[in-house]
Computed example of a mutant assay.
Amino acid sequence: MAIRAVHVPESADAAVARLAGGGWVMGGGTVVMPLVNSGAAPVTELVSLRRAGLGGVEVRDGAARIGAAATFTEVGAHPGLAFLRPALRTIASPTLRNQATVGGNLFVAQPYGDLAVCLLALEATCEIAGPDRRRDAPVADVLASGIGAGEVVVAVRVALPEPGTWHYHKAMRRRLNSAAIVTVASVTGVDGGVVASTRIALGGVAPRPVRAVSAERLMLGRPLTHEALTEAGEAARGDADPFDDAYASAWYRTRVLPVHLRRAFLP
C-alpha cells in the first residue's frame, strides 16, 4: 500500500487524536520505513512522534524517566545511564542508534529488541496515553500484549540498579552491529556471598523478551559460581521459546543459552 499522508502532531494528546483516524505510529522509522518501502505496511497514513515532545532523559533520586522518542544515542550520552552504554553499543550501528527510539524498541520482534530486554530486567514501567486516559503499565505487560488501539507510549521509567548489580551479555555473529543469538540482562544483588535478589531477562531465545524465572529461582541463596550459573542456565531453557532465523537455529540457541547466561555474570 502507498503512504498518502504523514502527520507530525506536536503533543502526545494530538498524536492520540490523530491515531483515531487510523494509521501507524512512527518513532525513528527504523522498523516502519523498511516496511513502507517494501510495500508491506498495511496502512496509508503514518503518525510521526518526532515533534510530539516525547524525547529527553531525566535522572534524579535513583530513578530515570526516558521519553519514548528518545534515541539510543541520547540515552547512551546521559551520564546517569552510563551502565547501559555497553548494551547500547551492541545494538545496530551508530547511524541506526541515532534514529532508533526507546519506545519503538518495545515493539520490535526478536532478535532485535535488545534495549527492551534491558528494560524488562530493570522492571521498567511504561507511561501510556490513550483516547480516554493516561495509565501506567509494567513493561513486561507491554512486551507480552502490546498496547491498546489508539494508545501511545509516552515514556519509560526505571529504578537505577545499585552499583555492581547490573549484568549484560549478548552473543552475536559479529562483535558489533548484529542481531542477537542470545541476550542476557540482569539486576542481581549479592549479600553475604549469596544471591539475595535477581531478575534475569533473555532476548533472542523467544519471539519477545522473557524473564528467566526458572533460573532466578535456582540462583537465590546460592553464590555466583560456575556450577550454580550453569544449572541456572540449563533451567532457563524451560523459559525460552527459540526460533530459527538467518543468525542461528532454535537448536543452537537452546544449546548455547547456559553458556551465555553464565558469561553475563562470569565473563
Rank of each mutant, 00 (worst) to 15 (best):
L49N: 01
A64N: 02
R85E: 13
A70L: 09
V75P: 03
T73L: 03
P79S: 07
R65D: 11
L46D: 10
A82K: 13
V43L: 14
L84W: 01
R51H: 15
G53F: 00
V47W: 00
V47P: 00
L81V: 14
R65N: 11
V57E: 10
A69M: 06
D61E: 14
S48N: 10
V59M: 04
V57C: 09
G76Q: 12
A70F: 08
A70M: 08
G56R: 14
A77V: 10
A69H: 00
V47C: 05
T71Q: 02
L84P: 04
A70P: 05
R65V: 15
A64Y: 02
G80S: 01
G76F: 11
G56S: 10
V43F: 15
L49I: 01
A63W: 11
S48D: 12
G62S: 08
E45L: 05
G80R: 05
A64K: 03
L46C: 03
V59I: 12
A64Q: 04
A63N: 04
L81F: 07
A63K: 12
G55A: 04
R50G: 06
A68M: 02
G62W: 08
H78Q: 05
V47H: 01
V43K: 14
A82R: 13
T44R: 15
G55T: 06
T73N: 09
V57K: 13
L54T: 01
A77W: 06
T71H: 10
G55H: 07
G80W: 01
P79L: 07
P79Q: 07
V57M: 11
A63T: 14
E74P: 09
R51F: 14
A69Q: 01
G53M: 02
L81H: 05
R85I: 12
A52Q: 08
T71A: 07
P79M: 10
G80H: 02
V75K: 11
E45Q: 06
A64D: 01
E74A: 12
V43H: 15
L84M: 05
I66A: 04
L84D: 00
V59D: 05
T71M: 09
I66V: 15
V75F: 03
I66M: 09
P79H: 10
A82F: 09
G62D: 05
A63I: 13
T44M: 10
A69T: 00
L54R: 00
R50S: 14
L81M: 09
R60A: 15
T73D: 10
G53A: 07
E58W: 14
P79A: 07
V57S: 12
F83Y: 08
